[in-house]
Protein backbone atom coordinates (compact mmCIF):
# COMPACT_ATOMS: atom_id res chain seq x y z
CA UNK A 1 0.00 0.00 0.00
CA UNK A 2 2.78 2.35 1.01
CA UNK A 3 4.55 1.75 -2.32
CA UNK A 4 1.44 2.45 -4.37
CA UNK A 5 0.64 5.64 -2.45
CA UNK A 6 4.17 7.01 -2.92
CA UNK A 7 4.22 5.95 -6.57
CA UNK A 8 0.91 7.66 -7.30
CA UNK A 9 1.49 10.84 -5.31
CA UNK A 10 4.94 11.71 -6.60
CA UNK A 11 4.07 10.55 -10.10
CA UNK A 12 0.84 12.56 -9.96
CA UNK A 13 2.63 15.68 -8.78
CA UNK A 14 5.18 15.22 -11.55
CA UNK A 15 2.39 14.92 -14.10
CA UNK A 16 0.57 18.01 -12.79
CA UNK A 17 3.70 20.13 -12.87
CA UNK A 18 4.82 18.70 -16.21
CA UNK A 19 1.45 19.64 -17.69
CA UNK A 20 1.46 23.05 -16.03
CA UNK A 21 4.95 23.82 -17.34
CA UNK A 22 4.07 22.59 -20.81
CA UNK A 23 0.98 24.83 -20.86
CA UNK A 24 2.84 27.92 -19.68
CA UNK A 25 5.73 27.19 -22.07
CA UNK A 26 3.24 27.40 -24.91
CA UNK A 27 1.18 30.27 -23.62
CA UNK A 28 4.21 32.41 -22.77
CA UNK A 29 6.35 31.18 -25.64
CA UNK A 30 8.98 33.70 -26.57
CA UNK A 31 9.88 33.30 -30.25
CA UNK A 32 13.58 32.91 -30.07
CA UNK A 33 15.84 31.76 -32.79
CA UNK A 34 17.82 28.77 -31.50
CA UNK A 35 20.87 30.10 -33.31
CA UNK A 36 20.98 33.10 -30.97
CA UNK A 37 21.95 30.92 -28.06
CA UNK A 38 24.52 28.93 -30.01
CA UNK A 39 26.16 32.13 -31.26
CA UNK A 40 26.04 33.62 -27.79
CA UNK A 41 27.98 30.63 -26.49
CA UNK A 42 30.61 31.20 -29.21
CA UNK A 43 31.22 34.83 -28.24
CA UNK A 44 33.86 35.64 -25.57
CA UNK A 45 31.04 36.85 -23.33
CA UNK A 46 32.96 39.84 -21.97
CA UNK A 47 30.05 42.21 -22.82
CA UNK A 48 32.75 44.78 -23.74
CA UNK A 49 30.61 46.65 -26.28
CA UNK A 50 33.39 46.87 -28.90
CA UNK A 51 30.82 45.69 -31.50
CA UNK A 52 28.65 48.69 -30.66
CA UNK A 53 25.89 46.63 -29.05
CA UNK A 54 25.12 46.50 -25.31
CA UNK A 55 26.36 43.03 -24.44
CA UNK A 56 26.98 39.82 -26.35
CA UNK A 57 23.33 38.65 -26.21
CA UNK A 58 22.15 41.78 -28.07
CA UNK A 59 24.90 41.38 -30.66
CA UNK A 60 23.96 37.70 -31.13
CA UNK A 61 20.30 38.64 -31.70
CA UNK A 62 21.19 41.43 -34.14
CA UNK A 63 23.67 39.29 -36.11
CA UNK A 64 21.06 36.50 -36.47
CA UNK A 65 18.52 39.08 -37.70
CA UNK A 66 21.18 40.34 -40.10
CA UNK A 67 21.23 43.84 -38.58
CA UNK A 68 24.91 43.49 -37.57
CA UNK A 69 28.04 42.72 -39.61
CA UNK A 70 29.49 39.29 -38.98
CA UNK A 71 32.96 40.50 -37.98
CA UNK A 72 31.85 43.15 -35.46
CA UNK A 73 33.23 41.20 -32.53
CA UNK A 74 36.73 42.70 -32.16
CA UNK A 75 37.89 40.58 -29.19
CA UNK A 76 36.73 37.43 -30.96
CA UNK A 77 38.69 38.29 -34.07
CA UNK A 78 38.86 35.87 -36.96
CA UNK A 79 38.10 32.70 -34.97
CA UNK A 80 34.75 33.87 -33.64
CA UNK A 81 33.82 35.44 -36.94
CA UNK A 82 34.40 32.16 -38.78
CA UNK A 83 32.26 30.28 -36.24
CA UNK A 84 29.42 32.79 -36.59
CA UNK A 85 29.52 32.51 -40.35
CA UNK A 86 29.47 28.75 -40.06
CA UNK A 87 26.34 28.90 -37.86
CA UNK A 88 24.63 31.39 -40.12
CA UNK A 89 25.82 29.56 -43.26
CA UNK A 90 27.37 32.75 -44.61
CA UNK A 91 30.77 33.04 -46.32
CA UNK A 92 33.32 34.37 -43.82
CA UNK A 93 34.59 37.92 -44.49
CA UNK A 94 36.89 38.12 -41.43
CA UNK A 95 39.67 40.70 -41.58
CA UNK A 96 42.87 39.28 -40.18
CA UNK A 97 44.12 42.48 -38.53
CA UNK A 98 44.48 41.90 -34.79
CA UNK A 99 44.01 45.05 -32.78
CA UNK A 100 45.78 46.10 -29.57
CA UNK A 101 45.70 48.95 -27.04
CA UNK A 102 48.70 51.30 -26.60
CA UNK A 103 49.35 53.80 -23.76
CA UNK A 104 50.61 57.04 -25.32
CA UNK A 105 52.34 58.50 -22.24
CA UNK A 106 55.63 57.73 -20.45
CA UNK A 107 55.24 60.57 -17.92
CA UNK A 108 56.12 58.61 -14.79
CA UNK A 109 55.97 60.17 -11.28
CA UNK A 110 59.57 61.37 -11.38
CA UNK A 111 59.44 63.11 -14.79
CA UNK A 112 55.88 64.48 -14.90
CA UNK A 113 55.15 66.97 -12.08
CA UNK A 114 51.99 67.11 -9.96
CA UNK A 115 49.93 70.30 -9.43
CA UNK A 116 48.71 69.10 -6.00
CA UNK A 117 48.65 65.93 -3.88
CA UNK A 118 45.45 63.94 -4.50
CA UNK A 119 44.03 61.59 -1.83
CA UNK A 120 40.53 61.14 -3.28
CA UNK A 121 38.79 58.10 -4.75
CA UNK A 122 41.46 56.06 -6.61
CA UNK A 123 39.83 56.48 -10.01
CA UNK A 124 40.94 58.60 -12.97
CA UNK A 125 37.45 59.89 -13.74
CA UNK A 126 37.02 60.93 -10.08
CA UNK A 127 40.46 62.61 -10.09
CA UNK A 128 39.48 64.57 -13.21
CA UNK A 129 36.72 66.33 -11.24
CA UNK A 130 39.37 68.06 -9.10
CA UNK A 131 40.58 70.85 -11.44
CA UNK A 132 41.08 68.49 -14.34
CA UNK A 133 43.47 66.11 -12.57
CA UNK A 134 46.43 66.47 -10.21
CA UNK A 135 49.06 66.34 -12.97
CA UNK A 136 50.55 69.52 -14.38
CA UNK A 137 50.23 68.04 -17.88
CA UNK A 138 46.58 68.21 -18.98
CA UNK A 139 46.95 65.27 -21.42
CA UNK A 140 49.18 62.82 -19.50
CA UNK A 141 48.17 59.55 -17.83
CA UNK A 142 47.02 59.93 -14.16
CA UNK A 143 47.98 56.35 -13.33
CA UNK A 144 44.96 55.62 -11.05
CA UNK A 145 44.07 52.46 -12.95
CA UNK A 146 40.53 53.02 -14.26
CA UNK A 147 41.65 51.16 -17.38
CA UNK A 148 43.14 48.33 -15.26
CA UNK A 149 39.88 47.85 -13.41
CA UNK A 150 37.65 47.98 -16.44
CA UNK A 151 39.55 45.66 -18.80
CA UNK A 152 37.27 42.64 -19.37
CA UNK A 153 40.25 40.44 -20.38
CA UNK A 154 42.52 41.29 -17.44
CA UNK A 155 45.12 42.44 -19.99
CA UNK A 156 45.98 45.75 -18.32
CA UNK A 157 48.17 45.85 -15.22
CA UNK A 158 49.61 48.81 -13.34
CA UNK A 159 53.39 48.89 -13.93
CA UNK A 160 55.90 49.56 -11.15
CA UNK A 161 56.48 53.04 -12.64
CA UNK A 162 52.88 54.00 -11.96
CA UNK A 163 51.77 53.75 -15.62
CA UNK A 164 49.48 51.01 -17.04
CA UNK A 165 51.16 48.29 -19.14
CA UNK A 166 49.33 46.32 -21.84
CA UNK A 167 49.66 42.49 -21.85
CA UNK A 168 50.02 41.92 -25.59
CA UNK A 169 48.85 38.29 -25.56
CA UNK A 170 45.68 38.95 -23.60
CA UNK A 171 44.68 42.26 -25.16
CA UNK A 172 41.99 41.80 -27.86
CA UNK A 173 41.79 45.49 -28.86
CA UNK A 174 38.17 45.76 -27.71
CA UNK A 175 38.70 49.45 -26.89
CA UNK A 176 36.89 49.47 -23.52
CA UNK A 177 39.99 51.01 -21.87
CA UNK A 178 40.35 53.64 -24.58
CA UNK A 179 36.74 54.75 -24.03
CA UNK A 180 37.15 54.65 -20.23
CA UNK A 181 40.30 56.79 -20.11
CA UNK A 182 39.20 60.40 -19.35
CA UNK A 183 42.48 61.73 -20.80
CA UNK A 184 42.32 59.75 -24.12
CA UNK A 185 45.87 58.48 -23.47
CA UNK A 186 45.07 54.98 -24.77
CA UNK A 187 44.65 54.37 -28.54
CA UNK A 188 43.69 51.16 -30.38
CA UNK A 189 46.36 50.25 -32.95
CA UNK A 190 47.21 47.29 -35.17
CA UNK A 191 49.02 44.73 -33.05
CA UNK A 192 51.46 43.69 -35.78
CA UNK A 193 52.74 47.18 -36.79
CA UNK A 194 56.48 47.82 -36.71
CA UNK A 195 58.79 50.86 -36.70
CA UNK A 196 58.80 53.73 -34.21
CA UNK A 197 56.05 55.43 -32.25
CA UNK A 198 55.74 58.75 -30.38
CA UNK A 199 54.66 57.83 -26.84
CA UNK A 200 53.09 61.14 -25.90
CA UNK A 201 49.63 62.68 -25.92
CA UNK A 202 50.41 66.33 -25.03
CA UNK A 203 48.95 68.96 -27.39
CA UNK A 204 50.32 71.89 -25.31
CA UNK A 205 52.78 74.27 -26.90
CA UNK A 206 56.46 73.68 -26.15
CA UNK A 207 56.75 76.14 -23.24
CA UNK A 208 53.75 74.70 -21.33
CA UNK A 209 54.88 71.08 -21.94
CA UNK A 210 58.39 71.81 -20.65
CA UNK A 211 56.94 73.16 -17.39
CA UNK A 212 54.67 70.13 -16.97
CA UNK A 213 56.93 67.27 -17.95
CA UNK A 214 60.60 66.50 -18.71
CA UNK A 215 59.79 64.10 -21.57
CA UNK A 216 56.65 65.63 -23.16
CA UNK A 217 56.64 66.29 -26.94
CA UNK A 218 57.15 70.05 -27.55
CA UNK A 219 56.24 69.93 -31.27
CA UNK A 220 59.73 71.13 -32.37
CA UNK A 221 59.37 69.12 -35.65
CA UNK A 222 63.03 67.89 -35.43
CA UNK A 223 61.77 64.36 -36.16
CA UNK A 224 59.80 65.55 -39.18
CA UNK A 225 62.96 67.00 -40.74
CA UNK A 226 65.08 63.94 -39.83
CA UNK A 227 62.71 61.33 -41.27
CA UNK A 228 63.77 60.21 -44.82
CA UNK A 229 60.33 58.71 -45.63
CA UNK A 230 58.11 61.66 -44.44
CA UNK A 231 56.50 59.15 -42.02
CA UNK A 232 56.22 61.77 -39.25
CA UNK A 233 53.70 64.63 -39.14
CA UNK A 234 53.08 67.17 -36.35
CA UNK A 235 49.53 68.31 -35.63
CA UNK A 236 48.86 70.88 -32.86
CA UNK A 237 52.26 70.42 -31.22
CA UNK A 238 52.22 66.61 -31.16
CA UNK A 239 54.17 64.24 -33.49
CA UNK A 240 52.45 61.16 -35.02
CA UNK A 241 54.33 58.42 -36.91
CA UNK A 242 52.55 56.59 -39.76
CA UNK A 243 53.62 52.95 -39.26
CA UNK A 244 52.96 52.07 -42.94
CA UNK A 245 55.64 54.54 -44.15
CA UNK A 246 58.08 54.11 -41.25
CA UNK A 247 60.97 51.69 -42.06
CA UNK A 248 62.35 51.71 -38.51
CA UNK A 249 65.60 53.55 -39.55
CA UNK A 250 65.76 55.32 -36.14
CA UNK A 251 66.87 58.75 -37.46
CA UNK A 252 64.00 60.44 -35.69
CA UNK A 253 65.06 58.90 -32.38
CA UNK A 254 68.50 60.53 -32.68
CA UNK A 255 66.94 63.86 -33.74
CA UNK A 256 64.45 63.92 -30.88
CA UNK A 257 65.80 65.94 -27.94
CA UNK A 258 63.02 64.72 -25.62
CA UNK A 259 63.71 60.90 -25.83
CA UNK A 260 60.01 60.26 -26.49
CA UNK A 261 60.17 58.06 -29.60
CA UNK A 262 60.22 54.32 -28.82
CA UNK A 263 59.99 51.00 -30.66
CA UNK A 264 56.48 50.03 -31.74
CA UNK A 265 57.05 46.29 -31.25
CA UNK A 266 56.35 45.38 -27.64
CA UNK A 267 58.13 42.54 -25.83
CA UNK A 268 55.46 40.20 -24.32
CA UNK A 269 54.77 41.20 -20.71
CA UNK A 270 54.45 37.90 -18.76
Amino acid sequence: MDFVAAFVIIGGLGLIFGGLLAYTAQRFAVEEDARVETICDLLPGANCGACGFPGCINFAEKVVKGEAAVDCCVPGGKGVCDNICEVLGVESVASEIKKMAEVYCIGTKDVAYDKFVYHGVPDCKAAMMYGGGFKACKYGCLGLGTCVGICPFDAMHMGANGLPQVDVERCTGCGVCAKACPRGVIRIVNADRTGKVVLCNSKDRGKATRQACEVGCIGCKACVKACPNEAVVVEDNLAYIDSTKCDDCGKCVEACTRDIIKNAVKIALS
Binding site: I10, G14, F17, G18, L21, A22, A25
Partner: peptide, 10 residues
Protein backbone atom coordinates in the same frame (compact mmCIF):
# COMPACT_ATOMS: atom_id res chain seq x y z
CA UNK B 1 15.22 20.99 -21.80
CA UNK B 2 12.06 22.75 -20.66
CA UNK B 3 11.60 20.44 -17.63
CA UNK B 4 15.24 19.71 -16.92
CA UNK B 5 15.42 21.59 -13.59
CA UNK B 6 12.46 19.86 -11.91
CA UNK B 7 13.72 16.51 -13.23
CA UNK B 8 17.28 17.05 -11.92
CA UNK B 9 15.94 18.22 -8.59
CA UNK B 10 13.82 15.07 -8.30
Amino acid sequence: SKVRIPAYIL
